[in-house]
């Protein structure tokens, strides 16, 4: 413990020195920031976007003279593997760990190990952990719910039958998104959820679950979903020879292309609202800020972008199905709007 304190002190001293050196002139130190990124699984487009955003931010910072290196590990969906990976990153002596936690409790011990070794841990994207020593950068699900339900309500006049496609059962982020939807829906009592299925955040599963109960649902005006399920749901309706109901689309290329295609065919309109994979760039920026000695709050909230059909048409036409949209947040933006925001 004492040694850790010493290490942390010397680390602080080093950053202070660095800060004075920075203030002194452009004699930028060749100090290297090694950031461990513990991803949960790389199966879906959202995770690909998150990683791409993190790598973009690292490259951007490196171009500005801060030498940032990412070490990416993938837990293949298993919390036990993630615990081992956190411990390994700690032993390797990385400077910072960005963690997408697969559990809100199981990783607490591994986070303690890292923090007491002087390595700050930032939890983001998949949810938070109950360990208060972890810095938390969360997506603002309240804002997501308000924008998402707000758009649906505005288009339908606040009424209609909704099919609700939930995500992965038992996941904390899934529940948080769902709670946010329900809170926002309370304002519109005439929007009725007529059926609820779990799509497991998996296009294929979502499509099959919707397709299997669709014949029992003659009137569906609205589909509520969490990102990746929108494409699958639309495919289920199309395969049954039915019109695609109003639904909000995610940031996957498949989603965006489908929306553009439906719009070209029949004038179908909607928007893309999603929890933004670009939070990966925010996380890297926060890590570098923290390592540069800037005071970083323990809790931060990332914004939720809404992308209109017009923007999709002009800026994102011809995306590959396997691509994912994400917003680029640069370092200065992060300092001003995320870390500086009170």
């Amino acid at each position: 413990m004492l040694r850790n304190m010493v290490k942390r002190r010397s680390f602080l001293a080093a950053t202070l020195l660095l800060a004075t050196a920075l203030a002194g002139g452009p004699a930028l130190a060749k100090e290297k920031f090694v950031i461990g990124v513990a991803t949960p699984f790389q199966g879906n487009g959202w995770q690909k976007g998150f990683l791409a955003a993190a790598q973009w931010a690292a490259a951007e910072l490196s171009a500005k003279g801060k030498n940032v290196e990412l070490i990416v590990v993938d837990a293949a969906g298993d919390p036990q593997t993630q615990i081992q990976q956190l411990n390994n990153l700690t032993l390797q002596g990385v400077d910072f760990i960005i963690l997408e936690p697969l559990s809100d409790t199981a990783l607490n011990g591994a986070i303690d190990n890292a923090v007491s070794a002087g390595i700050p841990v930032l939890t983001t994207a998949l949810g938070s952990v109950t360990n208060p020593k972890a810095i938390s950068l969360q997506l603002d699900y309240n804002e997501l719910g308000e924008k998402y339900i707000g758009y649906i309500a505005q288009r339908t006049g606040g009424k209609g039958n909704a099919l609700n496609i939930r995500g992965l059962a038992g996941n904390a982020a899934e529940q948080a998104i769902q709670d946010a939807y329900i809170r926002s829906l309370a304002k519109y009592p005439d929007i009725k959820i007529v059926s609820e299925v779990y799509g497991d955040w998996n296009q294929s599963v979502a499509q099959q679950r919707v397709a299997s109960i669709l014949p029992t649902l003659p009137n569906v005006d609205i589909v509520l979903s969490q990102g990746v399920a929108a494409f699958g749901a639309a495919q289920a309706f199309l395969a049954a020879g039915r019109e695609v109901p109003l639904q909000v689309y995610g940031f996957d290329g498949a989603d965006v292309n489908l929306l553009l295609e439906l719009n070209a065919k029949s004038g179908y309109e909607s928007v893309a609202i999603n929890s933004d994979p670009g939070v990966g760039s925010l996380a890297v920026n926060v890590a570098v800020a923290k390592l540069s000695g800037i005071d970083v709050p323990m809790k931060m909230v990332a914004p939720i972008p809404q992308i209109t059909l017009f923007q999709l048409k002009t800026d994102h036409k011809g995306m590959a199905d396997s691509d994912t949209l994400w917003v680029k947040y640069d370092y200065d933006w992060t300092l001003k709007n995320l870390i500086g925001a009170k």
Binding site: Q42, N44, Q203
Partner: peptide, 8 residues
């Protein structure tokens, strides 16, 4: 059937 592929 799905009109696309995903890793899961």
């Amino acid at each position: 059937y799905q009109g696309g592929v995903s890793a899961d």
